[in-house]
Design a protein around this nucleic acid. Structure first.
Lengths: 122, 122
DNA sequence: AGATTATTCAACCAATAGGTTGACAACCCC
DNA sequence: GGGGTTGTCAACCTATTGGTTGAATAATCT
């Protein structure tokens, strides 16, 4: 029942899944509500099979789950998985920004000549 | 001076760039401070050329920029570009969650038999 | 200028991704 | 139970990706 074990690294799967415009578009559509493969395929000029493949990718990344409703297999967005990606992004943006801030302070406090060799401080 | 026009769709480039573990690792490293290609290559068991290619991908996604310092070309993380991805993720997670919340309300307010055909609304 | 260091370019290769078509499976309806 | 839906599996094709090695470029240091 759980949103699929998300194949490898997790993060790689999620980012890779979202790297494709069609897949991103499907996610956007699914955010409005569950949909069937045929419904999802309709806006695009590709075969149903191609769409099915895209959904497989999204599924393996843990971004969508499938249920069964008659012969249809509605696709459901598992939006919590986004958090994995968001947290990663947030973490390193914050870390980088924090560093720039500190660096600015240091530079501001430094006499002009001392600058320019700012070597890394392991 | 601006962080590179970010090749195609922008978002596709960013997500694709971050879909690779090595590249994500490099980003993590760069969040601690700028580094040269050789420094970045050191932890990995791949050629310098491979690392150079990874950096090209990151660069075209707008995630890093290069300057020049003697014969070195230090790599600098452009963390603002993360926002593009973060905003996208946040938007659709919120939208999906919002929908689930409303759906729950509707379901809760509905008598038991009426359920189960919850067709899409348009 | 010649040697050294740092990085990229070019050609190549295997594996993967995204697409196709055709056949198959699962389920409903009559 | 035969025929329409709905979706997936399989085989195939091409372009892209991530890696390699070898040669080229660029800046610096004698």
């Amino acid at each position: 029942m759980s949103p699929q074990p998300a194949r490898q690294d997790g993060l790689s799967g999620v980012f890779a899944a979202l790297a494709d415009p069609i897949r991103r578009d499907m996610v956007a559509r699914l955010a409005e509500g569950d949909a069937t493969v045929t419904e999802l395929a309709e806006p695009y000029d590709v075969s149903l099979q191609a769409v099915s493949k895209h959904l497989k990718v999204l599924g393996e990344a843990g971004l969508v789950s499938r249920t069964r409703d008659a012969q249809k297999r509605p696709v459901h967005l598992e939006a919590e998985v986004f958090d994995l990606a968001t947290k990663w992004l947030e973490r390193y943006r914050r870390q980088a920004e924090e560093r720039y801030r500190r660096l600015d302070e240091v530079l501001a406090a430094m006499p002009d000549e001392t600058r320019s060799q700012e070597s890394r401080h392991e």
